[in-house]
Amino acid sequence: MRLPALLAATLWLAPAPALAWGHRAHAAIDRAALAALPADGPLFLRRHADTIADSATLPDSWRAASEPFSKIEEDPNHGWFREQFAFLRPIPRSRYAFVIALYREHERLQASDPARAARTNVRWTGTLPYAAMESYGRLVVAMRAVRAAGSDRRARVLAEGQATYEVALLGHYIGDGAQPMHDSVHHDGWVGDNPNGYTRDRSVHGRFESGFVDRIGLSERDLAPHVAPLGHEGGDLFDAVLAYLDVAGDKVALTYQLEKRGGFADPTDAAVRALVIERAASGAAMLRDMIARAWRESASAPRRDLPDPLDLAAPAFDPATGSAPAAP
């Protein structure tokens, strides 16, 4: 049975709570990632594990209505509602090109499907992979500074502090991406056609990622045996992030199935526990891979042979964004 268009639009447009994995899960993901770093990785980060874990939900604090500029910029960075951009292939390698493509689709839909047009925008689609890649780039720069500091204690402290901050941010976005409801329009209850009778209760998000997680006392020790071996050492990292988000998004239906049979309310439910651990361990592995790769990349000086993306003569320069997309 279809929801009336007005009700569907209301569900889409109602203000959403600023939810993400609770602090416990984010901190566990961060600590498990640092513990799984390879021997030739940036092991100095382990000295800052408490700071990284304590800052695990910092980006969520930037999403309050009391700070509207930061909220407007930050909110989309925590989601990737892939049903919203099924029309868009390939995914642009530029945050701004992505936003413009959404707006053009919004304009196209206004007359034929105003309810869908109203949610075809950056807020109701998300920019999570861009936030992750932007943080990754800043992490590489910070790690170069760590290497360059040498025995200069003051320079080392400053560089390690910046790297610690970027790992905390990267960990938050990658951690969010591991949670299936961050990768779907069904982030706060099932939306639209609902033949399986999944809950439309907006509290479902928090009941899974915070309520259940807190009840089982999730820690990095639970994740450690399930963190995959080091990967993503080569290939295109943006594509790898997109694929990682797709894997999480494919588990949305399973998440709702487990909720439907009451699993979220029972801390002894083995299937829900297994899903939480599998997803959080996946986040820890991806974060570890990106940290280790950033460290390897930082061993080389910045390439000087690449075109400046802001140069009007750069390949694929887009006058609508004022830049060329990131090269593969």
Rank of each mutant, 00 (worst) to 15 (best):
D266H: 07
F212V: 06
L275I: 13
R202N: 01
D236Y: 02
G283Q: 02
V252Q: 09
M181T: 03
V204P: 04
I216A: 08
R273Q: 10
G211A: 09
Y256A: 14
D214T: 12
P195Y: 02
K251Y: 14
V276T: 12
S219R: 01
R202E: 12
T255A: 15
H182D: 06
R279D: 09
A243P: 00
Y244P: 05
A285C: 03
R288G: 01
K260M: 14
S210L: 09
D183N: 11
L275E: 12
R279K: 15
T268N: 14
R207Q: 06
E233W: 08
Y244V: 13
M286C: 05
L245C: 14
G235E: 12
Y244D: 07
I277Q: 05
D222T: 04
D269Y: 01
G283A: 02
T268C: 04
G192E: 00
R215Q: 15
P229F: 00
A228V: 05
R207Y: 11
W190T: 00
P229N: 03
E233P: 09
V204I: 15
P225K: 01
G263D: 14
L242W: 11
P195W: 03
F208Y: 12
A284N: 02
P225E: 07
Y198W: 13
A224K: 04
H182E: 08
R273C: 07
D289M: 00
A285I: 13
H232V: 05
L287M: 03
V191Q: 07
R221V: 13
E278Y: 12
H186R: 03
R279S: 09
L258Q: 07
F238V: 00
E209C: 00
F208S: 08
L242T: 10
N194A: 05
S184G: 00
K251N: 09
N196H: 12
S219F: 04
G234V: 07
V241G: 00
T268I: 10
E278S: 12
L242R: 06
G192K: 03
F208A: 07
G211H: 06
V272E: 11
H187I: 01
V213T: 12
F212I: 06
L242Q: 02
P225W: 10
V227T: 08
V213Y: 09
L223F: 04
E220P: 01
A270K: 10
L258E: 11
V247S: 07
D214R: 06
T268M: 05
R261S: 03
M286N: 06
R273E: 12
A253H: 15
M286F: 07
W190Q: 01
A265C: 04
M181H: 07
S203A: 14
P225I: 04
E278C: 06
D183V: 08
E233A: 13
D250Q: 12
G234M: 04
M286V: 06
L237H: 01
D266R: 13
F238T: 15
L237D: 08
V204G: 04
K260T: 07
D250I: 10
D188P: 02
I277T: 14
A271S: 15
L287C: 01
S219Y: 04
D236T: 11
F264G: 06
Y244E: 05
G234T: 15
H186N: 05
V204F: 10
D201Y: 05
I216M: 11
E209G: 11
A228Q: 11
T199N: 12
A284R: 02
S184L: 07
F264S: 13
F264W: 11
A270I: 10
E278L: 08
E233H: 02
G234I: 09
V191P: 01
V204H: 06
Y198A: 12
D222Q: 08
G234S: 15
D236I: 15
G249P: 14
